[in-house]
Design a protein around this nucleic acid. Structure first.
Lengths: 356, 356
DNA sequence: CATAGTATCGTAAACGTTTACGGAGCGCGT
DNA sequence: ACGCGCTCCGTAAACGTTTACGATACTATG
């Protein structure tokens, strides 16, 4: 009974080596595809590993070679984001993984607790060295995390641009293009008084959106009226509130651009309550289509994109800035403004009769 | 220039020890709150660690003490799930973390790639020993993952019950209670022909829901008619399809129970197309309220619960089965059927006139 | 036969921690 | 003076890998 029986407790590479009567080093080389190993012994090793269910302990490996083969995606998931975003992150995750899995990289999500400072959380995660690279999301207009990551010299990319990260890799939806397209379209239909809804300008999106709106108006020679910019939450209630505020204006708009499709639900309702019919009395265009809005009558004009493919793009941006993969993903630029496509509906499909 | 200057490159505990002229062991003990260390030196160590930004390398620590202080939440995120579930997982995650963070445990999400077998993926994750414990979700009716985890002797809990996991820890929504309550309510309003929609019976939910429906009918002495069970996807299209199939029946129902609120959108639309008004001509009750359904007219009667608190419960179930925390979370039972609350609307608020 | 080269493998160090163990210093009682 | 206990700290082993290096056996070449 020298080395017979079934050594069930698979503790590590050592047991595997003993079971094969091979040195531990050779086993490691065989498993990792290193050159200095006979093809036949390699087969034996792989077969035994498969049979005994051996998989290398990640801690040992990471400690030795200083790499984890894991990419982290940090999400803040504030209560409001969770309520309103329609699985945006899970969809992006799908795109990211479809790229990473080709390189045997695993993606993990790092959800920052609601009661912890995102900066401190990220610092901890970086220091623990549990990931080789990081993707941060929900970027703020000024975001210290960019500096942290740059200083830590860990490869990263951002889902969402930032002033702090002007020269860093990111991918972001083309908010500017959207609002430009929307304004152009509305102006072509005869509108001059166009309202816009946006979240607080602290959030980068809130700033970019309104800034683009402003420049678009300027391009058409329309004066910018601050009263037509409504700050509201990106929710159904927010849409209701936007309608409410616009109704209270003396000189109200003939068209409105909503920043999130969900808002349209509340907006429609409030307007209908007031006897104003979207698509007939007021034009509505909304950013980012979500599957839930299809029921709206009249059909909402909005913008669509493949969030999955945005994830693919972001993954490639990240890999291009990781030394081990950069030659596989050569790039001119590491900053992508992701395009969206206009889906025409009935909510703005009328020509304004009276020129104001 | 013995040990002056700023030793910026913080490589590990060794540098920290040298910088303090203290042995490496003492530094470790000081940082980890072990008893055999002078309070003053402890303060010095903590201060220096803070100043130099030292955080223990996780790989080294894990390797030594065989524990990672990380809990994994595996999600499959099939394309359909991502489309339809309204951030259910992110909400649960919030509840989980609110418990875990109290014990300095970190939660990471492990999203299984779409093209990989969930069982193999889990096997890999377990073998790599990147987590101390696991939560699996989207459990199947028979789910090999339970056996895998039990055999690997890694603590785990499931979000969703399973036949395989009958004796294992889980928390799940009370589908049975929901369908019972719905049937009781509809019967009390005079309905005898009640239809139900459910996903495929492979999915555990699909089985439980219909089984509960069947027993509830039996309790009221109503014959079970298979024609009134419609298998459909939990989406808007699915709801449209359910209405369509029900309309084609010779002897149609006077009430319907939908399994997901999103379906009500399509259901309403198809019914209105046929000139049948929900809440007047047909009663509608739906499971699980989502914020998006509030606009429906007439208001949908549905069931609500705090998904966040479900996460809290699940976290406590898991901790109670981890040796290091079990005495802190004593439990009689490790299986929770999570209750939901009825939110009465107008969609079923009428008494059926003609007794059939 | 001697030598060089090649293919394959074993040995041991290293990664950064934690922790069991023992030792030094000190106070105190006998 | 001696022994004992206590507090605090240093030493070194161990965790499971990977990998640089050297050793061995064999083949080919002169």
């Amino acid at each position: 009974m020298a080395h017979g029986g079934k050594p069930r407790p698979m503790k590590g590479i050592r047991q595997l080596a003993e079971h094969l009567d091979i040195s531990i080093g050779t086993v490691s080389r065989a498993l990792n595809g290193k050159p200095d190993v006979n093809e036949e012994t390699r087969k034996r090793v792989l077969a035994a590993a498969e049979q005994l269910g051996y998989v290398a302990n990640q801690s040992g490996r990471s400690l030795r070679q200083g790499t984890t083969n894991v990419i982290g995606l940090m999400i803040q998931s504030s209560r409001e984001t969770v309520e309103n975003s329609d699985n945006f992150f899970l969809t992006v995750t799908g795109g990211l993984q479809s790229v990473f899995s080709r390189h045997k990289l695993d993606l993990i999500m790092l959800p920052c607790p609601h009661d912890e400072d995102p900066y401190e959380y990220l610092k901890r995660m970086v220091a623990r060295r549990i990931v080789d690279a990081l993707i941060i999301s929900e970027t703020q207009r000024v975001d210290k995390r960019f500096d942290l990551l740059a200083k830590a010299k860990i490869p990263f990319a951002a889902l969402g641009r930032s002033l702090s990260g002007a020269q860093h890799p990111w991918a972001d939806l083309d908010f500017d293009g959207v609002v430009n397209c929307a304004v152009d379209r509305l102006v072509a239909h005869g509108h001059r008084r166009i309202a816009v809804s946006a979240p607080s300008s602290d959030i980068n999106l809130g700033f970019i959106f309104v800034d683009g709106y402003r420049r678009a108006l300027e391009r058409h020679g329309i004066a910018y009226d601050p009263a037509l910019v409504i700050r509201a939450k990106s929710s159904e209630q927010g849409g209701y509130q936007v309608a409410d505020e616009l109704l209270s204006l003396e000189n109200g708009p003939t068209a409105v651009i909503l920043i999130y499709e969900l808002m349209a639900i509340g907006f429609y309702r409030r307007m209908m309550e007031a006897g104003i019919i979207p698509g007939r009395d007021i034009a509505v265009v909304s950013f980012r289509e979500a599957p839930r809005a299809k029921f709206l009558q009249p059909a909402l004009t909005c913008f669509r994109t493949s969030v999955h493919d945005l994830g693919v793009e972001l993954a490639e941006i990240l890999l291009s800035s990781m030394p081990a993969y950069s030659q596989e993903y050569p790039r001119k630029t590491r900053q992508t403004v992701w395009p969206l496509e206009l889906i025409p509906g009935e909510s703005d499909a009328f020509q304004l009769k009276t020129a104001k």
